[in-house]
């Protein structure tokens, strides 16, 4: 600092130039190195791994072949599994949007003390492990011993336990529960940006409460709902703990399949291929829908 002060103006300009060129790199270097070290390198290795060969007895062979990718492309098992993964993610997203948006709206209309209390109730589960929350569902609905199943059967309302474990329905319900806070938070943020008098304005113009929600509130919080949907969709499609507990090894999704290939079959290259495909598909979907949303709402909300 003092050296820079002492030097002639020309020198100051020169140091300023070099500083302009290098300083950002120098300053971001630690974070950049961490990023490269823990994300880019493992990712590149995973991509490379997906092109290696593997055999029951020979293990992983570092060659370049398309065997794994061909298997995924041709075996309908993988198509069905990926289709199931995205179907579950989509349904979860729809359910969280359907319940989360009204939840956030009602929360926003509550008066001070109740508002903070219920915000805590909604966000509180984020502090509890996903495993614990999903196990809760398993305890309630899991087979003959599930609490709710036992109760309903002893009341004679149902003859056999409700199918929940190892079903897509169960997985969607549990996932929706786990993901709900993200949707509520996202819509809540959008609601904060609403003019507090805007509903009164519509009211004074003769609109009923349903019209106000449909024509005034909903269009304005739609970007919030959509960004919440992107978060929930990508988290659900790549979720591991909940599908692992509810679906077990019977009903597999992309994440649990990749896990199984890595740790049970030990076919790392195939697991890597599944993981890479899931990642690429998710990135495409998220980036694509984000671009669509940006374009749709740029005019209004910029």
């Amino acid at each position: 600092m003092s050296a820079a002060v002492d030097t002639a103006p020309a020198n100051i300009a020169a140091t300023a130039d070099t500083r302009d060129g290098r300083a950002p790199w120098a300053l971001t270097a630690p974070a950049l190195m961490l990023f490269v070290g823990v994300l880019v390198i493992p990712l590149a290795m995973t991509v490379m791994l997906s092109f290696h060969d593997w055999g029951q007895y020979k293990g992983i062979e570092p060659v370049f072949i398309l065997k794994n990718w061909r298997e995924i492309a041709t075996d309908p098992y993988y198509a069905e599994m990926f289709w199931r993964t995205f179907r579950i993610a989509l349904l979860t997203t729809l359910i969280t949007a359907m319940f989360g948006a009204p939840e956030a709206y009602i929360l926003n209309r509550m008066s001070g003390r109740w508002k903070s209390f219920f915000l805590l109730v909604i966000l509180g589960p984020l502090l509890i492990s996903v495993v614990a929350r999903t196990l809760g569902w398993a305890l309630l609905f899991g087979g003959n011993n599930g609490l709710v199943n036992k109760l309903l059967m002893s009341l004679g309302l149902i003859g056999s336990p409700l199918p929940f474990m190892f079903t897509e329905t169960g997985m969607v319900i549990a996932l929706a529960h786990v993901m709900m806070p993200f949707m509520v938070l996202s819509v809540w943020t959008a609601l904060q940006r609403l003019d507090p008098q805007i509903e009164n304005a519509a009211l004074s113009l003769g609109a009923g409460s349903f019209t106000i929600i449909r024509r005034i509130v909903l269009p304005q919080i739609m970007p919030g709902v959509l960004s919440g949907a992107i978060i929930v969709f990508s988290l659900s499609a790549s979720a591991f703990a909940t599908p692992a507990i509810i679906g077990g090894r019977r009903l597999k999704v992309a994440a649990t399949l990749a896990y199984d290939e890595f740790l049970n079959t030990l076919d790392w290259p195939l697991g890597a291929a599944v993981a890479v495909l899931l990642l690429v598909a998710l990135v495409l979907i998220v980036v694509g829908s984000n671009a669509l949303i940006e374009r749709r709402y740029a005019e209004v909300f910029r």
């Binding site: 008098q197 009164n200 004074s204 304005q220």
Partner: peptide, 27 residues
Amino acid sequence: PAKRGLGVVFQSYALFPHMTAAENVAF
């Protein structure tokens, strides 16, 4: 309030941001 038929202009204007000027007036 919706039946009173009074016109209100708010300090913050409270325009509907997702509607054009004409759509706002037409509401």
